[in-house]
């Protein structure tokens, strides 16, 4: 994984609403995430542990209207040992948004 990590220490933003992050890491505890309405990530979740952190942070982003996981799920399923990860991630996100 690339060593670039986007966090509050990198960029101090208060009005951020749309974030696209491809092939870099994100500090999921950053407070600016709470204001996001659109989030697109790709290649940011490569391990089940990343997915757990992501899923823990997702409900905190209460204004989120659009979530684009790009090829995150496909990327996960491409690794044989992580095929269960796709099911886990997809199922967890589905349950999160299913009324």
């Amino acid at each position: 994984m690339n060593s670039i990590v986007l966090s509050e220490n990198t960029l101090n933003v208060s009005a951020l609403r749309r974030l696209t992050l491809i092939a870099s890491e994100l500090d999921w505890t950053s407070s600016f995430l709470r204001g996001l309405t659109h989030l697109k990530i790709g290649g940011c979740i490569s391990e089940p542990s990343d997915a757990r952190i992501f899923l823990r942070a997702l409900p905190e982003i209460t204004l989120l209207e659009s979530l684009d996981l790009d090829d995150t799920i496909e990327f996960a399923s491409a690794v044989p040992s992580h095929q269960y990860f796709r099911t886990f991630l997809f199922g967890a996100i589905w349950s999160l948004f299913d009324p």
Partner: peptide, 26 residues
């Protein structure tokens, strides 16, 4: 790339109060 980003956004914080949309493609 890491080097380019590090040089563009060296710590400490850069304040971007108007930033609405941010995209990073590594």
């Amino acid at each position: 790339r890491s080097a380019g980003f590090g040089e563009f956004f060296p710590p400490p914080n850069h304040y971007a109060p108007q930033l609405h949309t941010f995209r990073i493609f590594v």
